[in-house]
């Protein structure tokens, strides 16, 4: 590469606190691909939980202070489809009242990528070495699939992983039952949705359940662990780390 691409990591709150290994995997992966990665200071949470629960004034303030953190970033990579959706689809609208902030939010929206999208659509990387062998299946997280219209990029990466067989998950496009605060507002309903999802996961015979969203992974991983299932819920990045 002649001029090195620069990408900033927006690690997200769940990524920071619960899944730091995903962020680490992304940093190492991108560096191997010749990308310069930085991690702008002052990140907290994108504000999606506030926004979806109707706390828009609070979400607006989060957006207002998050957007400038990435002012100098050439591109921004996000490990969760839902947080990428928040930045790309909701930040500009939230900041519509302030022309300057709105413009800046639109600019950030255009430079922000969910990880699989960055790999496939921006970097044009589809063949990557794998950390695991065997059968994997993929769950479409709702915000990545229906919010950002992305079904193909994660599958492209998974299909091309050496030694990995991607089996389609029946009902892959159906919600896992996480839904942020929904999971604790209506825990029985959330769990009932999850049970059906996990039965479907186990029917595939896969050893790895892959998703591109920390929320879905928390829900499905938590359910699988509770069942004592041999299936592991992992983030796409975790399959790709250390493969080189």
């Amino acid at each position: 590469m002649t001029s090195k691409l620069r990408v900033s990591l927006m690690v997200t709150c769940l990524g920071d606190m619960f899944y730091p290994e995903v962020g680490v995997a992304i940093v190492r992966l991108l560096r191997r691909l010749g990308v310069a990665v930085d991690f702008p200071a002052g990140q907290t949470c994108c504000g999606l939980p506030l926004f979806n629960s109707g706390y828009h004034r609070e979400a607006r303030e989060v957006a207002r202070r998050t957007v400038p953190l990435f002012r100098e970033s050439e591109h921004v990579v996000v490990p969760s489809g839902s947080c990428a959706w928040m930045v790309k689809q909701e930040y500009p609208g939230l900041l519509a009242d302030d022309a300057g902030a709105h413009r800046e939010a639109q600019s950030l929206a255009a430079r922000t990528w969910e990880l699989s999208q960055l790999l496939v659509r921006k970097l044009g990387v589809t063949r990557l070495p794998s950390r695991v062998k065997g059968r994997v299946t993929y769950h479409d997280s709702c915000h990545l699939l229906r919010g950002l219209g992305e079904a193909e990029s994660p599958r492209t990466v998974l299909r091309n992983l050496e030694g990995v067989e991607l089996v389609e998950l029946p009902g892959a496009d159906q919600c896992c039952g996480f839904g942020g605060s929904f999971a604790v507002r209506l825990p029985e309903v959330s769990t009932s949705i999850l049970d059906k999802k996990l039965a479907s996961v186990e029917s595939t015979g896969a050893e790895c359940l892959v998703a591109c969203d920390a929320g879905c992974l928390m829900q499905m991983g938590g359910g699988l662990a509770r069942r004592g299932s041999r299936v592991k819920a992992v983030h796409l990045a975790q399959l790709l780390e250390d493969g080189a």
Partner: peptide, 20 residues
């Protein structure tokens, strides 16, 4: 409400921010 039916990952020994 979460842990009755699902495990919860523990907050990591070191957050990403702490590892950066």
């Amino acid at each position: 409400r979460w842990t009755r039916t699902r495990d919860l990952p523990a907050v990591a020994a070191r957050t990403f921010g702490e590892r950066w």
